[in-house]
């Protein structure tokens, strides 16, 4: 495992920790899109279908369990926790995420490396992950006061896939047997590009020591 991949995973983990910290300590999920969280839970379920059958490393298995467990605990907090669920701003979270699911499923059935159940589900998870942040980005744009934890959450999430891209370049150059997964690369690039606008305002607000606010 190279440093880019590891750093990417840690960023991903950090984003989840930051979000859980906000929810657990502040008992608030203000500004967080439930729809994005639902999409991520679905992404993890479909991608980690091999969790009990395909052992790669202890690190791999533990991380999969952590991502699945955190995704479901976030959903539980936002939907069922009596205090947290009242801070969820349903009216601002209006993205039609079912269309994303449908579009990604159709695309996965059409464009994949191999036509098997597991491979199509894996491909679906890759496509869905690329666009899962959209409801969250729309919600951020509508929120006037984005708190630090929410801003950092999205920032870490964007950095994670960016680092994965460096990891793919590194593996492409160093591993003879590394398959040319162009499908993952294109999706990963789109996923990272979606954050470009957000990154710009995040860095700007950080440099100017101002509160983060996205233009409407």
């Amino acid at each position: 495992m190279n440093i880019f991949r590891f750093a990417g995973d840690m960023m991903h983990l950090l984003s989840v920790v930051v979000l859980l910290l906000k929810i657990h300590k502040m008992k608030s999920c203000a500004g967080i899109s439930l729809k994005t969280q639902e999409l991520y839970a679905l992404v993890f379920i479909c991608r980690y279908l091999d969790i009990f059958t395909g052992f790669i490393s202890l690190y791999n298995t533990i991380m999969k369990i952590v991502f699945l467990a955190s995704a479901f605990s976030i959903l539980w907090y936002m939907r069922s926790h009596k205090v947290v669920r009242q801070t969820y701003d349903k009216d601002q979270d209006t993205f039609r995420h079912y269309f994303l699911i449908l579009a990604c499923m159709v695309l996965a059935l059409l464009v994949h490396h191999k036509f098997t159940f597991r491979e199509v589900m894996w491909t679906f998870s890759i496509y869905l992950e690329a666009v899962a942040i959209l409801p969250q980005l729309v919600m951020l744009q509508r929120t006037r006061n984005i708190d630090n934890l929410t801003g950092n959450y999205v920032f870490f999430l964007g950095t994670y896939r960016g680092l994965y891209m460096l990891n793919w370049v590194y593996r492409y150059l160093t591993e003879v047997h590394y398959h040319h997964r162009w499908l993952t690369w294109i999706s990963g690039f789109i996923q990272t590009a979606l954050y470009a606008d957000f990154f710009y305002y995040y860095v700007k607000s950080w440099r100017n020591n101002e509160k983060l606010q996205l233009p409407a």
Binding site: R5, D9, G54, S57, K64, F67, N167
Partner: peptide, 10 residues
């Protein structure tokens, strides 16, 4: 091309 390709990324 091998038929089984382990997906070692998360």
């Amino acid at each position: 091309e091998s038929t089984y390709e382990p997906k070692d990324e998360l």
